[in-house]
Simulated scan of single mutants.
Amino acid sequence: MQLGDFAHLRTGDKGDISQVSVVAYDPADYPLLARVVTVDRVLAHLARLTVRRATRYELPGLAALNFVLEGALSGGVTRSLSLDAHGKTLGAQLLDLPIGDGD
């Protein structure tokens, strides 16, 4: 299974910072997401990025996790040579994060 089976995402970007919010479809799945969708796993899944600092904020009342990825956009949307350096692209990639039975 993948993260996209349990959650949807909202993303945003400003300058060189990308923000990705992971929101559980079913609030009952929030504890699983909080346990397995860690900063380390997110950074490993998006390994091609050169993130300076990653912070995870937990929002249990919304069944959501918010990740702030500083330096993730290669200098910013208007400065990057990446084909699509927007936060929404990172969010789409994150939906493929494996969520296994052993997690």
Rank of each mutant, 00 (worst) to 15 (best):
Leu94Pro: 03
Leu43Asn: 07
Leu43Ala: 05
Gly75Glu: 11
Gly15Pro: 14
Asp13Ser: 13
Leu32Arg: 14
Gln2Trp: 06
Tyr30Glu: 00
His45Phe: 02
Ala64Ile: 10
Leu43Val: 02
Gly75Asp: 12
Pro31Asn: 10
Gly15Met: 12
Glu70Pro: 07
Leu32Lys: 13
Ala92Val: 08
Leu3Arg: 03
Asp5Pro: 03
Ile17Thr: 15
Leu97Trp: 07
Gly71Thr: 03
Ala7Gly: 04
Ile17Asp: 13
Gly76Asn: 01
Thr55Tyr: 08
Leu95Asp: 03
Met1His: 11
Asp101Gly: 06
Leu81Tyr: 04
Ala92Arg: 14
Ser82Asn: 08
Glu70Ser: 13
Tyr30Ala: 00
Thr50Lys: 14
Leu94His: 02
Asp96Leu: 09
Tyr57Phe: 05
Thr89Pro: 03
Arg10His: 12
Val51Tyr: 13
Leu32Asp: 05
Tyr30Trp: 00
Arg56His: 06
Leu95Lys: 06
Val68Trp: 02
Leu83Tyr: 09
Leu33Arg: 00
Arg10Gly: 14
Ala28Cys: 09
Ile99Asp: 03
Asp96Pro: 03
Leu62Asn: 07
Leu33Cys: 01
Val39His: 11
Ala24Asp: 00
Gly15Gln: 12
Glu58Cys: 07
Ala47Asp: 15
Ala64Leu: 12
His86Thr: 14
Asp103Tyr: 06
Asp84Tyr: 12
